[in-house]
Nucleic acid binder design. Structure first.
Lengths: 151, 151
DNA sequence: AATGATTTGACAATATATTGTCAATATGAC
DNA sequence: GTCATATTGACAATATATTGTCAAATCATT
């Protein structure tokens, strides 16, 4: 196996691990507010502006059906409500309720505390740089993948 | 939401996205060899040395049961065989068969080609640096999480 | 306007992952 | 050696995710 192959595999395995770690962290932060990480994620996606289920899925790179399932659960729990969508009769808008907003706000302090500890551990500039690099890597993979498709 | 909170959330969302991207890439590379990404991952974990199911799970940060399922499938397909473990009568060792090794080798060329393209796209040094940063981030999260537990 | 292609949510079927429990086995303290 | 503890695979139950199909709705082209 070439060095570059090892590098690619190593990156992938590290990302898989990071994925699990961030999920665990999110789970831990969300639980006290009565949310799961997935619920928090969907709820967070509509804080700025209500979106239809398919729009949320597109924004987060997960499947429509997964979002639909969570959105229905959130709606059943009164965290979210479906509003008529002026632009599409079927694709109702998912919007947070007051209770949903309150739940997200309850996560705020612990979220901020953890973020502070992370930035402190990494160093202010290194933390920002890291996010930049992650996004650059993702963008690069996007390009390579679409090149792949074209071939 | 503080800047740091936004940074943490942004990192997490980017990692979730990267996770999906690497999974898609692995799936694409493995499929022509008759493997799924998960199969390749488990098979890859025992290339250097046979390991029991729980050992594989520990090495990759996934649950025992998930590994067990894949390992049983691989065994049913003749990619892997269970060997007696001198150190533990129940915990048989998962070892690749000749067919399993061959399948992994079939992935080699495409794997190398993609790795080359990735390194080329990122730049030789930036690529290595990136892996280092990913691992550093993971290690930092590990530390913060265990601090959390202790509290 | 008409029509073909695309997007959307609903629904079902299947695949995959997680959690909990159990008995067998191994490990460590003494 | 003995006993408490932890690890391991087997199994079951449940939760979650993915894939495929369908009709309604929208969009783009003409």
């Amino acid at each position: 196996m070439s060095d570059r192959q090892a590098l690619l595999s190593g990156m992938a395995l590290t990302v898989f691990r990071l994925n699990g770690q961030f999920l665990d962290i999110a789970e831990g932060l969300a639980r006290p507010a009565g949310l799961t990480a997935a619920h928090w994620q969907v709820l967070g996606a509509v804080l700025k502006e209500p979106l239809p289920v398919a729009g949320i899925a597109r924004a987060m790179g997960i499947t429509r059906q997964a979002v639909q399932r969570i959105a229905d659960l959130l709606a059943a729990n009164g965290m979210v409500e479906y509003r008529p969508n002026p632009a599409h009769r079927r694709a109702k808008l998912v919007a947070p309720t007051a209770q949903g907003l309150e739940a997200v706000e309850r996560i705020g302090p612990a979220h901020a505390a953890f973020a502070d500890r992370l930035v402190e551990a990494l160093g202010e500039d290194r933390a920002a740089e890291m996010h930049e690099l992650l996004r650059a890597l993702s963008a690069t993979l996007e390009t390579l993948a679409s090149d792949q498709d074209r071939t």
